[in-house]
Structures are given as structure tokens and as C-alpha cells.
Measured scan of single mutants.
Amino acid sequence: QGEKVEGLQAQALYPWRAKKDNHLNFNKNDVITVLEQQDMWWFGEVQGQKGWFPKSYVKLISG
């Protein structure tokens, strides 16, 4: 089970394309609201879409 977080935002360092239905698509420089953190994967929201993404593709910009 991941840790729920509030008020964290991350900026995409690279584009990410979903490999599964529960993954989040985003483009480089998109700002993602992080909702949950697990070891290597984070759950977040961007442009009304929610899903999992690899944390190595983003950098935290707040929180």
C-alpha cells in the first residue's frame, strides 16, 4: 500500500506513455499533482486524468 500525500506537485522530465490502462500519460514539463507514492511508482493527476507513472520521470517542485 502506498503513502497518500497532499499538496505535492512534480514536473515531468520526460514524456511518458501509458503501458497499461491504469497508467498516466504526460508530456515533458507537464505539472502533475502527486496523490500517492510507492517505491518506484507514483499515482497522480494531470489534465483531469489519473494514473500511475514511474517516479524517475519527474522531479518534485513543491511539498
Rank of each mutant, 00 (worst) to 15 (best):
Q1S: 04
G2D: 06
G2P: 04
G2V: 11
E3I: 15
K4H: 08
K4Q: 04
V5T: 07
V5C: 03
E6W: 09
L8W: 09
L8K: 09
L8Q: 14
Q9N: 14
Q9D: 15
Q9H: 14
A10Y: 14
A10K: 09
A10H: 03
A10L: 06
Q11Y: 11
Q11W: 10
Q11K: 09
A12K: 01
Y14V: 14
P15H: 12
P15N: 15
R17P: 05
R17G: 05
R17L: 13
A18Y: 04
A18G: 14
A18L: 06
K19V: 14
K19Q: 15
K20G: 12
K20R: 11
D21T: 13
D21R: 09
H23P: 02
H23C: 03
H23I: 02
H23T: 07
L24G: 01
L24C: 07
N25H: 14
F26A: 01
N27T: 05
K28H: 06
K28L: 03
K28F: 03
N29F: 07
D30S: 06
D30I: 02
D30P: 01
D30Y: 03
T33A: 11
T33I: 07
T33P: 00
V34A: 00
V34M: 01
V34C: 03
V34Y: 01
V34E: 02
L35G: 13
L35S: 10
L35A: 02
L35E: 06
E36Q: 04
Q37A: 13
Q37I: 05
Q37L: 06
Q37R: 12
Q38P: 05
Q38M: 12
Q38D: 15
D39Y: 07
D39Q: 05
M40Q: 14
M40C: 15
M40V: 08
M40D: 14
M40L: 14
M40A: 11
F43Q: 07
F43P: 01
G44D: 00
G44L: 00
E45C: 10
E45G: 06
V46A: 14
Q47C: 04
Q47I: 14
G48K: 12
G48C: 04
Q49D: 03
K50G: 08
K50C: 10
G51A: 04
F53V: 02
F53Y: 02
K55S: 15
K55D: 13
S56C: 07
S56K: 06
S56F: 06
S56Y: 07
S56M: 06
Y57L: 14
Y57Q: 09
V58C: 08
K59C: 08
K59G: 03
K59F: 04
L60S: 08
L60D: 07
L60T: 08
L60N: 06
I61C: 11
S62Y: 02
S62I: 08
